[in-house]
Design a protein around this nucleic acid. Structure first.
Lengths: 352, 352
DNA sequence: CTGAAAGCGCTTACAG
DNA sequence: CTGAAAGCGCTTACAG
């Protein structure tokens, strides 16, 4: 096995604008102009410079350009979570890919921040010119990040939304509409005894949007149809909690004919519990989930009827929004509410 | 609604090292030294400078530091895929979070590249100093990215591995071992008629590691136990393909008592097919999946026995490896093979 | 222990 | 149409 020499920095790296200028027999500014399609340049000069660029394999130094240009052309996507290890159960891959795709289209870099951030650290991201803007995930009704960024007038965009939205741009899932839509659908099928397994109490207490707004929507739906309240606040990301929540619900309300959950995981637990107690889904009880779709829905047996959003699309749009804001292309704050899509699969059925 | 003025760049941004120097009544290099804990500085001066830094809210300009320092302190993670939209079905979130976490610990930035990359574009990432190194995903036995990077002597690390590994650093899942381990486990339970739903033929043809090595491991296992071959190459990411693949397999081999799949999705399809044909899992037939774990396994009913790896850990380690390589902390190429962990759940059982 | 000088690679007025 | 000069914010020898 021949041992090769592995230098830490590469030789190719050395080609600078000065090299190109020398090779083409012109000055550095001239090369720069040609690179940036500025002003008038003699066609013959342009040819010569391009020739030099090609033979030298020159590419402008991104960092230097950015230093000169003032903008970092870098965005951050922040999800506050104690343990990044667990993020996979909280957020879908498509959030990353949607953001990454939009950023790359707009020639921005994107940094994913998946940790608890101190106010100091957040400010430093801007102050030290690491980022031009940030996209906030998991926004609370009263969110310190929003307050801080707003005070300091640093550009940001939310996926989600806080309480005071004046002049703020966001894209959010419309949970209120989703809840009512779920009831519209189930009531239409003849259901009147509907149980709801919602977000954990801790989410509600800390003012997390989905928790607060789902419950609001739930109340609307109840009064719209004159139904009585029947819900449990349970953990989001475990089949077990769905299992136990469902058992709980049925112990006190054996008459239920439908269950709405806010995660595919708890829906799966719900189905497990029902099946185990001899209730067939959807024959004896319908189950539906509100949330992100993806592959989960069809893995479950029976496959899940859902009201879902595309995290890819939502994050893509949020990122485009961020770049537009930075380019001053937004005349006013953009506030976008995305309605969910109803996808009927096998887990729901009319009451017999 | 009061209309606020939204300047595009922020005022706080202006604080530079020169401001600090002036405020503290010292020269710029002195501030720089203090910032970087260099050499001897009079304690009294240090105090004064720190004081100025604090009151001005100064943070060093990252881009400028990088320009001066030579390194971009930025890494890329590349997954080649035609449609980034579909990435969520191919790769787990934990890949991103593991990478992001390691990068942030080492004070690197990380850019996720989730698109088809041209050779030209890949070289440009280095030439234009956008990145110091790249982490390659979905590596083929003969991978143009590897060849190109190697030729140009640009630093990279693989999650996966190609055929010629001389002097290359990687961390890969040990699929051969996994296959044999699956058979060890099932044979121990008394199974001798075992069907295998493996990666699609296209993967095998393009030389994708998991496809090639799973099949190799499969052959080893067969000859180890003197069993006959019985497998199908099917699509990875759909419940349907698992469903149909299983039906296919049983049509010609009704005697099968166990199925091994390489994805949770196809395993779910497998269970669906078996159940639908009146075969109880695991009573009449065991099903197990080789691959990443996560929440999928317990969503399925019965929950899946798996041989699994943690994508968080694998990507975390790969990223650390990359930073070590860049810091020249690696005396030789690191080649790490990660064995899977067997997690017995409900979907497997001894032959009765 | 500290400052004046040069330079990282580029771009943008400013003259010609 | 093109070049000389200044500067983006920082760090690193080099003198003192």
């Amino acid at each position: 096995m021949t041992k090769k020499n592995t230098p830490s920095r590469n030789e190719n790296r050395g080609v600078t604008i000065a090299d190109v200028a020398k090779a083409a027999g012109v000055s550095i500014p001239t090369v720069s102009r040609i690179l940036n399609d500025k002003e008038y340049v003699a066609e013959e000069t342009r040819q010569r410079v391009h020739e030099a660029i090609r033979t030298l394999g020159y590419t402008p130094h991104t960092q230097a350009r950015r230093l000169r240009g003032g903008a970092t052309m870098t965005l951050a996507l922040h999800h506050p979570i104690e343990s990044p290890h667990d993020l996979s159960s909280v957020i879908e891959t498509s959030y990353f890919t949607g953001t990454a795709e939009a950023a790359s289209e707009k020639e921005y870099f994107i940094n994913f921040l998946v940790s608890q951030l101190t106010p100091e650290a957040l400010l430093n991201m801007y102050r030290s010119n690491q980022i031009d803007g940030i996209i906030l995930l998991q926004v609370r009704m009263d969110d310190w990040r929003v307050n801080l960024l707003r005070e300091n007038n640093y550009p940001f965009v939310m996926i989600g939304r806080c309480a005071d939205l004046e002049d703020l741009s966001f894209i959010d899932l419309d949970f209120e509409t989703a809840m009512v839509a779920a009831f519209d659908y189930l009531v239409e099928l003849g259901h009147r005894d509907i149980g709801f397994l919602t977000y954990p109490q801790s989410w509600h207490k800390t003012g997390l949007g989905p928790a607060v707004r789902s419950l609001d929507g739930y109340q609307h739906a109840l009064s719209k149809y004159g139904l009585r309240s029947c819900y449990r606040e349970i953990g989001l990301n475990s089949v077990e909690e769905g299992f136990e929540g469902t058992n709980d619900l049925f112990r006190e309300n054996p008459e239920l004919t439908a269950i709405i959950t806010v995660s595919h995981l708890t829906a799966a637990g719900s189905i497990k519990a029902l099946t185990q107690h001899g209730r067939n889904v959807p024959q004896d009880c319908s189950v539906m989930a509100i949330g992100f779709g993806g592959n989960f829905a069809s893995v479950v047996t029976p496959s899940l009827t859902t009201l879902e959003w595309s995290p890819y699309e939502v994050s893509y749009r949020a990122t485009i929004l961020m770049t537009e804001k930075l380019a001053n292309e937004l005349s006013s704050a953009q506030q976008i509410l995305v309605p969910p899509k109803l996808i009927v699969r096998e887990s729901t059925k009319e009451v017999t």
